[in-house]
Each structure stands twice: as C-alpha cells, then as structure tokens.
C-alpha cells in the first residue's frame, strides 16, 4: 500500500507492491501521453492566445489526436480506480482531500485572477486556471500532512 511523502505532495512508488505499482505507473504514463496529445489538440484551437491552426483543425490528424486524448485519459482513469481500490482509507482520504482542494484552488485563485485581470491587463486562460487547480492540490496535500501525518 502507498506511503504518502513530501509533506503530502507525493506517493512513495517504492512502497507499492508490484500490482499496485503497475496500475499506478500505467495510469500516470497514459495520463501524460494524453496530456501531450491534448497539447497538440490545443494548437489547433488556440494555445496561449496564439493564432490557432484553424485551417487544419478538422483534419484527420487532429481528429486522431483527439481520439487519442479521450482513450488514453479514460484508460488512465480506469487504471487509477483499479489502483485506488486496493489502497487503505487514509490514501482514499488523501485523494479526496487533494481533489477538493484542487477545486477550491481553481475557484479562488482562478476567480482572483479574473477579478484582477482588467487592472493587470492579463486575461487568465486554461493554463492559468490549471495552475490555480495545481496550487489548490498542493495546498490540500500540505493541509492533509499537517492534519493527519505530522508528528
């Protein structure tokens, strides 16, 4: 079963048994693979407010890329659920904690960025909101560590 490390930010991969390790690493690898494909997809619809590749947006290449995103993330989720099924209740709680705090980060930091955007002449987009989600997740991990694990 997984051991939570780095102030609630990480799972110690070496603490996992071979089956859990396979499920976890497969899930993470497929997620990252899907994320790369997602990046390619974004280049066809607009990334960092650059001019998107509209002419080719409906090409078979981008269609295949989008199918790859959906399939890899669905399979990644299935492997992650398989991994979570064998974990104990503290790990499940950690998982829920991080997800909840990710949502709080998305709403609070994302809304703050949006409220400040007219004064800073800066328009928050997908990446800024994702960063807000990641900051929330990180705060959640730290709060979990302080609440349940700290000596």
């Amino acid at each position: 079963m997984a051991k939570i490390t780095h102030y609630g930010q990480w799972l110690d991969i070496s603490s996992l048994n071979p089956v859990d390790k396979k499920n976890y690493l497969t899930s993470v690898t497929l997620f990252l693979f899907g994320a790369v494909a997602w990046g390619i997809h974004l280049s066809s619809v607009g990334i960092f407010y650059d001019t998107p590749d509209i002419e080719n947006a409906k090409s078979s290449f981008y269609t295949v890329v989008r199918v790859v995103v959906i399939i890899s993330w669905i399979v990644s989720s299935l492997y992650y659920m398989k991994f979570l099924k064998t974990q104990d209740e503290l790990i499940i709680r950690w998982n829920e904690f991080i997800g909840s705090w990710g949502a709080i980060g998305f709403l609070s930091f994302g809304m703050l960025m949006s409220l400040l955007s007219p004064y800073l002449e800066f328009k928050p987009g997908f990446y800024e909101l994702f960063l807000a989600f990641a900051i929330g997740c990180s705060i959640g991990g730290l709060r979990f560590h302080n609440k349940y694990l700290a000596e």
Partner: peptide, 14 residues
C-alpha cells in the same frame, strides 16, 4: 492498512 494509518489513529488525528 499502512503504518501511516495506524500512526495517525494512535495520535488521535484520523
């Protein structure tokens, strides 16, 4: 469960 879970219960945190 994990040792972390037992430790957290013993400390009255979980």
């Amino acid at each position: 469960v994990t040792r972390q879970t037992i430790n957290s219960i013993e400390k009255g945190k979980f």
